[in-house]
Design a protein around this nucleic acid. Sequence first.
DNA 1: CGCCCATTTGATGTTCTTCAAAAGGTGTGG
DNA 2: CCACACCTTTTGAAGAACATCAAATGGGCG
Lengths: 234, 234
Amino acid sequence: MKRVEVGEAWTGVADCRHCVIRDAVLFSGLTEEDFSHLHRPIDQITYRAGARIYDTGDQAATLFTIRSGLVKLTQYLPDGTARIVRLLRKTDLFGLEAMIDEEYPHTATALRDTEVCRLPVDVVRTLSHANSRLFNELMTRWHHAVGTADRWITEFSTGSARDRVVRLLLWLSEKEDDERCELFSREDLGALLGLTTETASRTMAELKRKGFISEPRPNQFLCDTPNLRRLVGM
Amino acid sequence: MKRVEVGEAWTGVADCRHCVIRDAVLFSGLTEEDFSHLHRPIDQITYRAGARIYDTGDQAATLFTIRSGLVKLTQYLPDGTARIVRLLRKTDLFGLEAMIDEEYPHTATALRDTEVCRLPVDVVRTLSHANSRLFNELMTRWHHAVGTADRWITEFSTGSARDRVVRLLLWLSEKEDDERCELFSREDLGALLGLTTETASRTMAELKRKGFISEPRPNQFLCDTPNLRRLVGM
DNA sequence: CGCCCATTTGATGTTCTTCAAAAGGTGTGG
DNA sequence: CCACACCTTTTGAAGAACATCAAATGGGCG
């Protein structure tokens, strides 16, 4: 990974009322009146690919909404082993733990250039008491986080290396409109699936040889989803 | 597992106001007034060891608080593979998904005789809008579920079989007062750690041989926690 | 062009799974 | 109370899958 000197840049003050992804974000349920109580501005920030957004143990004071890009959450074992526990993209919310905890439990890193909105936790707390739609939205986000974590356990941490890779490819394709699927480094692929970089690489190579995937551009894949699905019995 | 004809038995109507574990449960923040609005009674139910509490896809209409016992949540892959994604005990809440979803995403099974309180989801929903302490308590529970799921990924799904078993033993001892640690079947141990029954059994045998654990009674273990901790670098 | 880093590939060893069989425990019925 | 059946656990042997170490390849960038 290349060193990035200036990892983040302040992009401006968000105009939540006219946000292009407003339907999909946390504040979708806010009323004009709610917004009028929003005295503290919502920052918009851009992180370069590879930039650290926050570190495990950092003081947790803001939630993040992704406007564009891709973010990984990594958790470390005492022996230094890293495991990627979540992958976040457009409209996803992360750092929710700030609502409860003093510190972030993960390390958040931008995998591509990533635009986020930073929501101060006390703003969200205050609004969530007043606005029950926001409260529901928050619950939905928590629910979603648990559901995703559980998929990580069953789909990405169970079975053979090939099965795990295939399930991940299918999961990534799900989220794309077409059957393309942007991937990241082999090292991250391994850290996500609990495999070594080499095994991740070999498995991808095997899938290519057998024609289940092709790689028109580096790290961009075309998946034969029907046949991949058949491979893992989905 | 022995067939259980009568898996569940209604034990009575809960008296939440005078609950012995009241400090620790979801309703700890409720006021006298809140309780007076609680027209629908809270059922108390006992499940026999091995009894199914709910099944993946069942209509989700109640949350459960554990008064005593042990419950596993299992998730299934399309090919039939089962993976235990959570272990719940006294004062834990499960079935939270009922707040959002129509169906339970897991199968919940009692591992020992287990007493639960059943909280109708609409009761919790109504109360949570009126009582902000309950709302906070709910958020805390969600937070806890995510945190536990993440530990499952990093600690129980990463590294060698021995490391996983050791981390689980340490986790179970954490929750006990002494260094005893009740365990369940080897099959469940495997399903929890993403290993086969045989590997789980062999790993336990090896730990016994080396003196890290002893088994005074079947499925009850004494752990040499300091040395176990050293084994996995904690 | 040459350097740096990520990826790929190879060879080897370990770990885990698989299949199979034996041992141990528990409950039932004779 | 013993014998038998059934189920779980343990153990063994063989093979497959994955990790590890090492080296080669290839792409991007100064």
